[in-house]
Design a protein around this nucleic acid. Sequence first.
DNA 1: TTGTCTGCAAACACTTTGCACTTTT
DNA 2: AAAAGTGCAAAGTGTTTGCAGACAA
Lengths: 168, 168
Amino acid sequence: MAVDADFSLGKVDVALTPSQRFTEFLQARGKRVTRQRRVIVDHVWSHHEHFDAEQLLDDLRRTPEGTNASRPTVYRTLAEMVDAGLLHKMVLDGRAVYEHDYGYPQHDHLYCSGCQRLIEFSSDDLVRIRDAVAASHQFRATGHKLIVTGICIDCRTSKAKSRHQDRV
Amino acid sequence: MAVDADFSLGKVDVALTPSQRFTEFLQARGKRVTRQRRVIVDHVWSHHEHFDAEQLLDDLRRTPEGTNASRPTVYRTLAEMVDAGLLHKMVLDGRAVYEHDYGYPQHDHLYCSGCQRLIEFSSDDLVRIRDAVAASHQFRATGHKLIVTGICIDCRTSKAKSRHQDRV
DNA sequence: TTGTCTGCAAACACTTTGCACTTTT
DNA sequence: AAAAGTGCAAAGTGTTTGCAGACAA
């Protein structure tokens, strides 16, 4: 699940690093800053990519001694990071996919059914329409999830699609 | 998972009933029109509601002799109905939820986090924006899924929320 | 020291599959 | 009769949990 190479939605200024924010979150709840939790946040923030729990687990296993964590710990820590507002979780094809949330603007995705790539975009018009529709149903919108399915230009132009089928 | 009581997006005229269309679909593929398949399509089309496989299985079990089907058959038949274009499948909170597709206009959902109700709506503006965004990324959109999360008016006005917590 | 966290193995929920038997065509 | 479908039980997949030992505060 690679992220579009050109990630054009810029970072937003934030006071603390993700790692600091997580530490703060843990301490505020009487939770402990363990080696595993540190290793996981650091690793997750070393790449701006969409990933799932198993990928993260594998990545950590390929890493030097003392920088990995067990499957249950990975799952538990990802859930905590979502609670902490660091990560955003979405479900795609039956498995949970995570992406950076803290410090990045709200956005939606184009999902290429050819190469499974997720391309990020954001649209103010979309949010406006969302709120107008919600209002007309006397519904108070707190968020939304939009995934536009289709075919990206690479998959459309290349006859030899093999190059685009990473991570299928 | 109840559907909004006032389903205001009208039916669309279609040449065949869902059951006829399914029969046609099966025959075209050399598949057989069995008692179970008939029972399932008929039951699914007797209510316009969102449902999942286990609910359907339970409903069928509560039904007179000779009008039920096993779990594997229910799953297999639902998949066929999706292939046939009769049902639309979406994944919500980890399980597959189905809704009528054949004969109904494309639409999206408001999802109340208070009572888990799905309210249907459709918006031409939304589709326009979707296509504009896609075009700007040289992406060819073939479809989309939008779920707006929030609180419905019932959950907002009632202090005694218990009444709205069916199916939680 | 005290209470939380970790990792293991086992449990989970939902869905799919292998296979002998039944049913439609 | 031939081919496809069904139901059972068992296997999968992704994720969660109970618990004894390990570790942060």
